[in-house]
Design a binder for these strands. Structure first.
Length: 261
DNA sequence: AAACAGTTCAACCGCGTCTGG
DNA sequence: GCCAGACGCGGTTGAACTGTT
């Protein structure tokens, strides 16, 4: 934190230090309602004495829906070790491969636990490929390897997703007046850079299409093949794009569904 | 029970990159 | 091309917590 709360200068423009529950609530309410256009304007609009940077960090690391709290599973540990071996301290890149975890969280975990741990054999990825057990569990989702297709399958409990992300019910979906708040799938489903657009079988599709494909495939998305070769270049594919519903047809233009976070 | 040491993790800082004028 | 503001990332800090003596 780098400060002592008791030493807060009264002349400081922005409040610093730990966030109070009231501040969290203000920020959460504001962002869920209006989304993010410009972080620097968020504090004043939300009635906070923080700076935009602090708000952004608080949101990303703590308030953002879909974050997974608590201990890392052994599978997650293995993934971090494998990815860190390949990437080094590219925490944001590593975090993208671990749904629900933040770069800060992973970085802390690395420095607190993994760095001190004796090196394990580095066949984690091979182990992933050699059996079909889940290797990545998150809030209500699991990643596993489809041994037939040799692709990673992300399976998600749609009920929990709907609750967590305030997705519309079937009835709500049919009513275009019911617009979603922004949902926050970017770190669940995106891979690095533009790999989706570049490599995906849905190249060229827009964000909404992507999410539509995801949602109405019973929560299953295959996210790549040849995992062993390059975990960071995972093209997305969809098990069945035809099962997409009209779930997000009610979204108005500019009402980003999952991107931008 | 108190003092000290070690650990955890939320938050800050600084810098590089991106973007729009 | 230049500049300023915004954003994103990795490194660092230190309060709070936990364990040990």
């Amino acid at each position: 934190m780098g400060f002592k709360p008791s030493e807060k200068p009264t002349t400081r423009k922005h409040k610093r230090g730990l966030w109070s529950p009231e501040e969290d609530q203000r920020l959460r309410d504001y962002l869920l309602r209006y989304g993010i256009s410009c972080w620097s304007s968020v504090p004043s609009n939300a009635g906070l004495q923080r700076n935009g940077k602090s708000c952004r960090l608080r949101w990303i690391n703590y308030l953002r829906p879909g974050l997974k709290r608590g201990m890392f599973s052994s599978q997650e540990e293995d993934m971090i070790l494998t990815l860190h071996k390949n990437l080094g301290n590219k925490w944001s890149q590593i975090a993208k491969q671990l749904p629900g975890r933040t770069d800060n969280e992973i970085k802390n975990y690395w420095h607190s636990y993994l760095k001190k741990r004796p090196a394990k054999s580095d066949d984690t990825v091979i182990n992933i490929q050699s059996n079909s057990t889940n290797f990545c569990s998150t809030m209500d989702s699991v990643c596993s390897l489809n041994p037939t297709t040799n692709r990673v399958v992300l399976g998600i409990d749609l009920d929990s997703i709907q609750n967590e992300f305030q997705m519309p019910s079937i009835e709500q979906r049919e009513n275009p007046e019911n617009l979603l708040p922004r949902c926050f799938f970017s770190d669940w489903l995106t891979t690095d850079n533009n790999s989706i657009a570049q490599n995906s079988e849905i190249s060229g599709k827009q964000d909404e299409d992507f999410l539509q494909c995801f949602q109405y495939n019973e929560g299953h998305v295959e996210i790549g093949n040849n995992l062993q070769d390059n975990m960071l270049d995972l093209p997305f594919t969809f098990l069945d794009q035809n099962t997409v519903g009209s779930c997000f047809n009610g979204l108005s233009a500019g009402n980003a569904v999952y991107s931008g976070f």
